[in-house]
């Protein structure tokens, strides 16, 4: 995992109170929802809010691509990087 991926994994753990999980338990391609980490739709909302605050980015609530962006830590990291670039330009 790169630094951003690690940051996001830690953010997921802290934001969602995953008290028995550590960053090393989360791999970049592990599914976050349903199978894998086992998060649900309320977690998705909570996580979107935390990502916006932490990385100062915008996440449109009606984005059709949201499901893909939130698939795993790797896809979230790519999404955050793309959003940061978009917001900076």
């Amino acid at each position: 995992m790169n630094d951003l991926q690690r940051d996001i994994a830690q953010l997921i753990i802290d934001t969602l109170s995953l008290e028995d999980i550590e960053v090393s338990d989360i791999t970049p391609n592990m599914p976050l929802f349903g199978e894998g980490l086992g998060l649900d739709s309320i977690d998705a909302l909570e996580l979107a809010l935390a990502l916006q605050k932490r990385f100062d980015i915008q996440i449109a609530s009606d984005s059709r691509d949201a499901r893909q962006h939130f698939a795993n830590v790797a896809s979230l990291a790519s999404f955050v990087e793309a959003q940061r670039a978009a917001c900076a330009s």
């Binding site: 909570e46 809010l49 916006q52």
Partner: peptide
């Protein structure tokens, strides 16, 4: 500040 969906719910 935006409200936490979990806390609000």
């Amino acid at each position: 500040q935006p409200l936490s969906p979990t806390q609000f719910g």
